[in-house]
Amino acid sequence: MIIIMAGGRSSRMGREKPVLKVGNRPMLLRVYEEAKKVDEVLVALSRNTPKTRELCLREGIPFVETPGKGYVEDLIYLLREFGPFISVSADLPFVRASDFLAIKKAFDGKTSLTGVLPLRLVPKDLKPIVYKGYAIVGLNAVGTEGEEFFELSNPLLALNVNTPEELKLANRIACLVGK
């Protein structure tokens, strides 16, 4: 199962990110359409995201309500409710089905996998979160025993849309890549 994390407060953006458009499509729909090519998909919402809930209802996308206390707290809640799963942030507009497939194949259902990109693959204009020499991306496998890094190869996973500037960049990229 793939769960799209779409219940955050979007404090840096100032508005609900999952419904914001990249390439004339809400980011949530971009992520959902790629994820559903690989597995069953559920969207994790909270009281913080009423417009995202409306979008899911309108599009017939299955969702679950989380407490909305924070990203980690919601992951723990979802793990208790559903068992191990693949998680992806709703603000990764350029995630591809092949990215989901790669992490799904590597996931044993126990050891959590944190999706990372080697820094050499990160486009120069992006400023991702860097940890132990890798860019951390919002695609992970959530298990019950330990954690390992999992290297991905899609450079555009380094673009997590958290700010108005990143949204503008994502729209420029969408125009360039035709998506």
Rank of each mutant, 00 (worst) to 15 (best):
A106H: 04
V72W: 15
K105A: 11
N24C: 06
N140R: 13
E59P: 09
R80F: 10
A135E: 03
A135D: 01
G23T: 02
R30P: 02
I4G: 04
R120S: 15
S10A: 15
I3H: 03
E16I: 05
T114I: 14
L78H: 02
A90R: 07
G138W: 08
L152I: 12
M27T: 03
G60P: 08
T66K: 00
V116H: 00
V43F: 06
P18L: 12
Y77K: 07
G178V: 05
E151N: 08
F82Q: 06
C56F: 11
R53E: 15
K179R: 15
I61Y: 07
L20V: 11
E16Q: 12
E166N: 08
R47I: 13
E54K: 15
M27P: 05
T111R: 11
L157V: 08
V72R: 14
V41T: 11
K21S: 07
S98M: 01
L29G: 04
D125I: 10
S46C: 09
T66F: 04
R25N: 05
Y32N: 10
R25E: 13
L75G: 03
L139Q: 04
F100S: 06
I136Q: 04
A141M: 10
S89A: 15
I136G: 01
F150K: 09
A97V: 04
G138F: 01
R172M: 13
F149I: 09
Y134L: 03
E34G: 00
R30C: 00
Y32P: 07
K168E: 15
G109K: 09
P155F: 14
F149T: 01
F85R: 04
I4M: 10
S153W: 08
E147F: 00
A44F: 12
D108Q: 05
L139Y: 03
N154H: 08
A141D: 04
K110T: 00
N162Q: 09
E40Q: 09
L121V: 06
I76L: 15
E145V: 15
E16K: 04
L159R: 10
E40F: 12
R58P: 00
E54S: 15
V116A: 01
F63N: 03
Y71I: 07
L159V: 08
G109D: 00
L156E: 05
L42N: 00
T114K: 11
L113Q: 07
A90V: 01
P26W: 00
G14D: 14
S11W: 10
A90P: 06
G146Q: 13
R15Y: 09
R53Y: 03
V31F: 08
R30Q: 08
G70W: 11
S46Q: 10
A141Q: 02
V142F: 09
G115K: 01
R120M: 06
I129K: 12
G23A: 09
V64Y: 12
I3R: 07
Y134A: 07
D74S: 01
L152H: 09
N154D: 11
L45H: 02
D99F: 07
P18T: 12
L79V: 10
L79P: 01
P18A: 10
I4E: 08
K51V: 06
E59Q: 13
V72T: 12
R25H: 05
E151A: 13
R53P: 06
G7Y: 05
C175R: 15
L119A: 08
V142E: 14
F149C: 07
N140H: 14
V64D: 08
D108N: 11
D108V: 07
G146E: 10
G8L: 05
G146L: 13
G83V: 04
L113N: 07
A158I: 13
L139H: 03
G146C: 12
F82H: 12
